[in-house]
Nucleic acid binder design. Structure first.
Length: 104
DNA sequence: CATATGACACTAT
DNA sequence: AATAGTGCCATAT
């Protein structure tokens, strides 16, 4: 017990919390920066367990295509949150995705 | 150590 | 453009 957290997840949460409001990032991009390219799935796994729910804006992490993807609280609710942050979403797709994409 | 799972990505059809 | 199949990595059991 005591924070069943791995180095990998620590990096993921850290990077995710660095994403500014109104911006979004992708699993693949995060993976490529914090650990290793291709670990997009692993990043999603880490965020899914996300023990720092309000601390880590996991909702700012989306798919490389700009799709919302899946979320623990429900992708439907996720769109609403992003909208509040200033990121408009159209049918699970980020509006101006490339423009709102935050690169590390 | 091997198998199964998952908030993904890419290529082929 | 949409769908399906395959590959990749980390975690859980």
């Amino acid at each position: 017990m005591k924070k069943d957290i791995t180095i990998f997840q620590k990096k993921v949460y850290n990077a995710a919390s660095l994403i500014p409001k109104g911006k979004v990032s992708t699993y693949a991009l995060l993976a490529a920066v914090i650990a290793r390219p291709g670990a997009a799935r692993a990043v999603g796994n880490a965020l899914n367990k996300n023990p720092y729910a309000p601390k880590v804006p996991c909702h700012r992490v989306v798919k490389s295509d700009g799709c919302i993807g899946g979320f623990a609280s429900g992708s439907k609710n996720k769109r609403e949150i992003l909208k509040t942050e200033g990121v408009l979403v159209n049918k699970n797709k980020i509006v101006d995705f490339e423009n709102k994409l935050y690169k590390f």
